[in-house]
């Protein structure tokens, strides 16, 4: 009697456990399958392509694995090299400008300001507007007759350059537009960090008779390190993903002046139909982002251990 009871108790528990597991899976299954189809499968497909040579006339059967050839060829490809160099130049400038400007905007916004809300909304606005509208308006602003030229003429520059049409300036013009677009967002991240700095640290510094510069260097900046780190990482990653603006405004030009990684992948794949070569370049992008993410993960974990 006693034994039979425990067995059926076990069975009931087992059955309940299976039922619970099935319920759990039923909740996540659609999403997991979706993510698998639209992220993991393309990733694997891209990885295979990057190691292949593809005779597209035979359809998918024309894919032949050839090893590392695409990866080797890449480094002697002029376009790829230029796109990498341009992208690094862009990244450095973009990250530095964005961090410095948005940090000071946030610093000001933390103090008493009249119409603070409106200032926040205004600086944030470019971040929510689609890239095509932004490209359209800046093409107009930068055009020969446009307000930017007019402004330089007003300052006394006789024949102001068309910044987007000259290789010397085009990359900088694009950088400025990208910084402008992300500014409000980064400033908001900084502001959130600044608000979390305990007020008594400033009071203690006041008691020591510290000036604003001392407070900035020895209280604000050190306390803001986690925020700054987070912003740097996301900005860094985003700087390797610029595409729409380039494709609409400059087509990577003039010449190769504004060709960056993602634009070059697009160009290689969809203008020259070299899907395998584009995939290999895409893998470089993945590796770059992967390394940045790993560093982020390590640093953040170290912080938890220190705590």
């Amino acid at each position: 009697m006693q034994r039979g009871k425990t067995i059926s108790g076990d069975q009931a528990r087992k059955r309940r456990k299976i039922k619970n597991a099935l319920t759990g899976y039923s909740f996540i299954i659609i999403n997991v399958v979706g993510v698998f189809i639209f992220w993991v499968v393309p990733l694997i497909f891209s990885l295979i392509l990057s190691f292949s040579k593809w005779d597209q006339s035979q359809g998918l059967a024309g894919i032949k694995i050839i090893g590392f050839e695409n990866y080797v060829k890449m480094w002697s490809d002029e376009w790829f090299r230029v796109s990498l160099v341009n992208n690094i130049k862009f990244t450095v400038l973009y990250v530095v400008l964005l961090l410095v400007i948005s940090f000071f905007v946030a610093l000001f916004l933390k103090e008493k300001v009249i119409g603070k809300k409106l200032v926040q909304l205004g600086t944030y606005l470019p971040y929510v507007v689609n890239v095509v509208a932004i490209a359209a308006v800046f093409l107009a602003l930068f055009s020969r007759m446009g307000p930017i030229s007019a402004f330089f003429k007003f300052l006394g520059v006789e024949d102001p350059p068309l910044f987007l049409n000259e290789s010397k300036y085009a990359l900088y013009a694009v950088t400025v537009i990208c910084v402008w677009q992300a500014l409000g967002y980064t400033a908001m991240l900084f502001l959130a960090g600044l608000i979390n700095v305990p007020e008594d640290l400033y009071e203690a510094a006041d008691l020591d008779g510290a000036g604003w510069r001392h407070k900035l260097l020895h209280v604000t900046i050190p306390m803001l390190r986690p925020t700054t780190f987070f912003i740097t990482v996301t900005t860094l990653i985003n700087s390797f993903k610029v595409f729409g603006l380039i494709n609409i405004m400059t087509n990577g030009g003039p010449g190769t002046a504004t060709t960056m990684l993602v634009y070059n992948i697009y160009r290689t794949a969809f203008r020259f139909n070299k899907m395998e070569f584009a995939s290999a370049q895409g893998m470089v992008l993945l590796v770059v982002i992967f390394i940045i993410s790993i560093i982020q993960f390590r640093v953040q974990n170290r912080k938890y251990e220190e705590m």
């Binding site: 895409g282 982002i289 992967f290």
Partner: peptide, 27 residues
């Protein structure tokens, strides 16, 4: 909900967040 492999699946799930969308243009 509790089910076997939940946390492992979730970590894999999060890892896919790292894949840049533009990488998947071609495939």
């Amino acid at each position: 909900l509790k089910f076997p492999g939940r946390n492992k699946i979730f970590i894999l799930y999060l890892a896919t967040m790292m894949i840049p969308g533009q990488l998947l243009m071609v495939p």
